[in-house]
Write a protein that binds this DNA or RNA. Structure first.
Lengths: 199, 199
DNA sequence: GTCTATACGCCGATAGAC
DNA sequence: GTCTATCGGCGTATAGAC
């Protein structure tokens, strides 16, 4: 089916929706869910107040829709548990890449996780798969005596902490030249593997 | 000492202030600054709405006062840069202990850091000393060729991530028996040292 | 589909009685 | 020092014109 032609605009509808999504993403990132008002979003997006409810059905639904782009990413990830060490390395590198490319959404997610927000129920498919994959990988690593840790849970948290903080932090005026995502990914995988390795 | 009996109350003033502080701490932790209303705090503390303004001068000042107990802790920390490896180990262990004993405040702090909130300006003396200490320690370690990293900034973030996530996370139903803070502190120091060590 | 105007509730802060 | 009552403002959501 071709475009509906001449009418007012080509895809004005989609355009407005995406403008709202863009504004919402940056605002939620820097002010949090409760710190961001629909008014601010619409002002930033340069559209009228009513359009968030019209296009998304309200602030909360807009919030959830923000995460649609990364829902697939995490769902489609696969790791070969037969080679746990390689799987761990692969997990770390892919996570860091995603940490960089989806910085804002993962920041928002971290805020929500930290306060155990009531919105998490609608976001489990966004964040749980990663935690589960990592846990399975580390479980396998431990069984093969590749790593050493008091409990798999603890190792999961340590690794996740490492990977979550792999990106530059806004509140530090980081001086020198920034690493590339790929460099950081390699270093992260190294750091994790060495850190968990049996002495 | 028996109860002071008949006078109005012994330290009702202090008692009310502390009740408000307690309620504020738990609410800010689980709902964030903007997600928590003064009304909720007062209801939870079982005092009337006006008392937050009366005793603290408003919501924001109450928020800042929450952190007073840990301001000293971080300011008074000292590390001997002459023995960087020992300093790093000490830093990790002390941070993890604090992470456990001041779980709620550090959670709140993390939320604020993550969204680079405008309130951070009044909290620099709470969180900056730790980041600075860690950076100095890692700088020293790197100069002595004890550790290896693409940049000190990156190492700082990795270590902080590890330590921040050293505590149990509310959104994971963590199965097995929890580690003690001391066990976790030891493991964290090990993980960090091994992770950063030259191969 | 997009706008303006408005409904209605909760927000933080304070005035004034006790 | 603590309460209740209330202020002005901003929150989300929607009705109705275009």
């Amino acid at each position: 089916m071709a475009k509906p032609q001449t009418p007012p605009e080509p895809d004005k509808n989609k355009e407005v929706k995406e403008q709202i999504l863009r504004a919402a993403k940056t605002l939620f990132t820097t002010r949090g869910y409760d710190g961001t008002s629909v008014r601010q979003i619409c002002e930033e997006a340069d559209v009228s107040l009513a359009l968030v409810s019209y296009h998304f059905g309200g602030k909360e639904k807009l919030f959830y829709e923000l995460f649609n782009p990364i829902r697939e990413i995490f769902r489609n990830q696969q790791f070969d548990l037969a080679d746990p060490e390689k799987a761990l390395k692969q997990f770390c590198m892919e996570f860091v890449r995603n940490r960089y490319s989806e910085n804002e959404l993962i920041n928002i997610l971290q805020q929500e996780l930290l306060m155990n927000s009531p919105r998490l129920d609608m976001l489990t498919d966004v964040f749980l798969p990663s935690w589960d994959h990592l846990r399975q990988i580390l479980q396998a690593c431990k069984q093969c005596d590749i790593i050493e840790c008091p409990s798999v849970d603890t190792a999961v948290r340590f690794v996740m902490g490492t990977l979550m903080y792999s990106i530059q932090l806004p509140f530090l005026n980081q001086s020198g030249p920034a690493q590339t995502p790929e460099e950081t990914a390699r270093f992260a995988a190294d750091y994790v593997l060495k850190g968990l390795s049996r002495r």
